[in-house]
Amino acid sequence: MACTAFAIIRLRNLFSVVILSGIFSLLAASLYVLLTAVDVAFTEASVGAGISTLLMLATLAITSEYEKKSERSTLLPKSIVIVTGAVLIYGTLDMPLYGAADAPANLHLIQRFIEESGKEIGIPNIVTSILASYRGYDTLGETVVIFTAAIGVLVLLGHGRNRWRPGKQPKIARDEQEEEV
């Protein structure tokens, strides 16, 4: 994963960058499987490796394939990134080890869900019961975020040059009209 990340930084060919980011997502998905988070791995594989790669490729098709060489100094952004990364890694030092029995989440939350969710919800997949029922508000929020993304794309790109907007006249007729104006 680190290799792909560094390759993404160094490469200027955006097509390779998009493909590499897809590979990065797939590796992340395998990592989640190793951590026995199958639902998260599934999402990462379908959304991260699948659809986002595809959408980035679609974006590349309407922009250019090569990144422009930047003239400005990259010292300040680099130092900010390194400091932030170091702080984040320092933050993880306090976290309990993976699978530690005395981690706060393992002490009461997980026990409660494993013991009670079968009786309360009656669904074998605890992840689904948590996602859709215990934290239904958050999932509603996530759905609205996705909805907002679609609305944003429609507002930005759905107008003008998009032929497939409902009730839009064909492009040729529109161009003729503009010439008249």
Partner: peptide
């Protein structure tokens, strides 16, 4: 919503005629 969003985003991007 997710299916409609993904289809919309892709078609809007791909339907641009530059």
């Amino acid at each position: 919503t997710v299916a409609a969003t993904m289809v919309t985003v892709f078609f809007v991007f791909a339907g641009q005629d530059f």
